[in-house]
Amino acid sequence: MTTALIVAFTYWLVYWIDESFSWQALVRPIVAGPIFGLVLGDVKTGIILGGMLEAIYMGVVSIGGGAPADAYVATALVVTYVIQGGISLEAGVALSFPIGTLARNINTLVLPMHAYLIRWFEKFAAAGDYKSYSFLQQIYRIVFSRLFHTIVIFLGVWLGGDAVVSFFNVLPPYILKGLTVAGALFPAVGLGILLTMIYKKELTGFMIIGFVLVAYLGIGTMGIALIAGATALIFYFIDAEKKANASSSKGEELF
């Protein structure tokens, strides 16, 4: 129980410090490993395990949001299981796979809560109350952004590794699969909100071109940015020239 509290608190604190720089540095296994090792009284194991986990999760990084596994939750629990539960380093590393992939689903599960809290921000924004908006940003990130992850860490340490894995084995597979499906749908909400602000019927063609360039031709973000930039530039100069002509012809009429 005490260990569970300590590990969960450390998890929350380190995440909080890391997020204060939007860093994703302290939460990487190579740094988080030694930290959990330190609080559990075995820094050396923490360092080595952190290095082993980093080697695996080096390629696992949340680019554009969707990481395939939560390396930080995996590090917290695996380091604890190895130091406290006395399992081997290798067994710990093996255990990190199911834990990391399962932990990823926490974000999906708590999304309705986030969707609800977002409305508070919208309310303050609509009132022009920037002080409350800033205050809520602080409260939100400190309290809510990792609340459920912290609870999961607490339960994970308290119940032990075997219990966690066997619990998820009991769950019907379609539930976890379903959460992954839902996770793939979520970006549509943000894009939908964005579209309500910038969509213009007469410019739909350009949106289709952008879609085609990526979906059919597989052009990357930088490539499409250059093409979109070039297109915008062409239309900008055509438009500007039209305006220049219009004003100069107006001038001719005057004289």
């Binding site: 970006p187 579209l195 350009f206 949106m207 952008g210 499409i224 979109a228 297109t231 239309f235 900008y236």
Partner: peptide, 30 residues
């Protein structure tokens, strides 16, 4: 130079093209 209107239109074109691309790159519904 009084060209802000032209820039606004160009920005709309740029924005919508990028969002069109984002639909494909951020989403993967199969």
């Amino acid at each position: 130079k009084g060209l802000v209107q032209s820039l606004t239109k160009a920005a709309s074109i740029l924005g919508l093209m990028m969002v069109g691309g984002l639909v494909s790159s951020l989403m993967n519904v199969t």
